[in-house]
Design a protein around this nucleic acid. Structure first.
Lengths: 341, 341
DNA sequence: TTGTAAGCGTTATCAC
DNA sequence: GTGATAACGCTTACAA
């Protein structure tokens, strides 16, 4: 913070002012506002009027400090730019909103160090709970969390040993299931396009699932069938070109993330590669676009909004009743088979 | 907040503990941490060691209360689910992050009342600044803001009379420019698909721009050419069907938002309507997908990330140097002409 | 039902 | 360069 800042203006109306105007003590105002049932009807009215008249806005910061209770939940995502997180954010926000909680957001920039920094910043700000998309963390991050002891929910992957709780689906099982489906449909050279693997448990798990699926189907995992690409429509298009060049007989490609598959479909249109006649396309993440593509794309549907909702609920639950044991909530994925396979 | 909550656990390490361990006063620790240059080298070291040893995490809430200075900026969007906002959020976050500020997010649910509620909640939480996507607000919202007097930046439209500041582009001019382009290209029956108009200045401005463009081009604005649809791929597809049915000779459609145009392109593929031979398609918002569609889609590119960055910068600027006059920062849109027109 | 006093963990201010 | 003291605006705990 290298800028000179001016103090918060306005709202120089404290609970004391309300108290004076209502002819009662500050404590009584506080009660009238937070536990109206514990106060006489006439008093409640007088206080309400005074509040209106002086334009009182309670100071949540003071309340937090005084009560040692924060009502802010911190959410840390790999990136804010990725639209896939939008549903999850909305799910979290909807739940928090109902209980008067607030949502703070930060991104880790797809790095574990970035996550640790964000965690530190949030704990500094005394969030009452943490929702982390990552399931891998630095030692420092784990130490911080152990020290502060707030509820932590990991949502990016159904990790076997969560710090505190996890609400997610199994990336491994999802990728495995899709690969098995492709094999069952008779495809023999199944390519795989993964998002960057560095610092990313989800990508690694998906690749593991793909390899497991291949192995179980007695298929070969030729290195030339696997491609690591950044997300985005363009990457998907490029991947088709590269996989096709390296494997002339490739008959299916499983895109493990982002909107890669959309780019692939469009590229196949341009190259006149019949989908699925010449090459089948499968995707991960049910962007609604996939169902409108020509042909509609087979994909793994992730319950993103639910993950948001449930993870926020778990934070709130653990806030009111700290649980001694880690919790694992499996919100199952779903394979949606469409025309592209 | 109808749940019983437990106080924040852990981190029961205060600045006092650090002070004791370092053999100095709390005030000195505070200084050593925040203004290391104002303190002797040896002391700084001793304090740093003590901090590490006791595992001290400064309490930002207490700091805020004591200094009457918050470092949290509140952002209110119509929806968190809409991926179009992702770039803007990232832009804001990147700037705030650099200066040690935090970002709180809420959605108004596309309603003015919802916005007012969110503003109230944020002011209650004593945010130091507000970034609002809306440019229309309830009277109550305006009153609240006037009372608290924090920097407010409106970013959804370059509104002529911002509350405090606006960083955006002109939705009116953008829609007008696109309509003029279509007319110049020779299209004569130009349809228009708008997102819901209720409580939405941006949609209304875009429609106004479309109508202005038509008028300037001497074209008719038949009511049957205008359709109000929710966002999404499916809406775009449906819109093509309805416009085509109602206007057999329609030769262009301007989709004023979301991913409507993508759905339209896909629907035209299915119906074998040549684009742009039989019907031209233009879009608003440069989803990167549009450039990969077949054909690539002409669109208005909005500097979403920049809007995020600049709006956050304006908040920070006004925090250090409250400006007496409203500011208007026009981050120009850009027309990207591609194959679809 | 209402009020009093003592914090909550920092920082501003002013001495030393 | 360092420290004592009084806020910051509220809530907890207890007394009336």
């Amino acid at each position: 913070m290298d800028r000179q800042e001016v103090p918060l203006g306005g709202a120089r109306v404290s609970i004391q002012d309300v108290a004076r105007h209502a002819g009662v003590s500050a404590m009584t105002v506080s009660r009238a506002l937070r536990q109206p049932e514990k106060v006489s009807e006439s008093l409640r009215q007088r206080v309400a009027e005074a509040v209106d008249r002086v334009g009182y806005l309670p100071n949540g910061i003071a309340a937090s400090l005084s009560s040692s209770r924060s009502n802010v939940v911190g959410l840390i995502l790999p990136s804010l730019r990725n639209s896939l997180f939008a549903d999850t954010i909305q799910g979290i926000s909807d739940v928090l909103h109902r209980t008067g909680h607030h949502l703070m957001i930060a991104d880790s920039g797809y790095s574990l160090a970035g996550e640790e920094e964000a965690i530190r910043a949030f704990l500094h700000q005394r969030v009452c709970g943490l929702i982390l998309h990552n399931t891998w963390h630095t030692e420092g991050a784990r130490r911080l969390i152990a020290q502060i002891r707030v509820p932590v929910v990991e949502i990016g992957d159904l990790t076997p040993e969560p710090i505190d709780a996890t609400v997610s689906y199994s990336n491994f099982e999802a990728a495995r299931a899709m690969t098995l489906l492709l094999a069952r449909r008779g495809y023999r050279q199944i390519g795989f396009v993964t998002l960057p693997l560095a610092d990313n448990a989800r990508s690694v798990e998906r690749r593991r699932g793909y390899l497991a699926g291949l192995a179980e189907s007695g298929l070969d995992a030729a290195p030339s069938l696997i491609l690591e690409m950044p997300g985005g429509v363009g990457s998907g298009a490029e991947a088709i070109g590269r996989l096709h060049a390296a494997n002339p007989d490739i008959d299916a490609v499983f895109f493990a993330g982002d909107v890669l598959a959309v780019g692939a479909i469009l590229e196949c249109q341009r190259r006149n590669l019949a989908v699925p006649g010449r090459i089948a396309i499968a995707s991960f993440d049910d962007v609604d676009l996939l169902s409108y593509a020509n042909p509609p794309v087979t994909t793994v549907r992730i319950p993103r909004y639910d993950i948001g909702q449930r993870s926020a609920e778990v934070v709130l639950d653990r806030l009111s009743m700290p649980a001694p044991t880690p919790a694992r909530l499996d919100l199952a994925f779903q394979i949606i088979e469409r025309g592209s396979t």
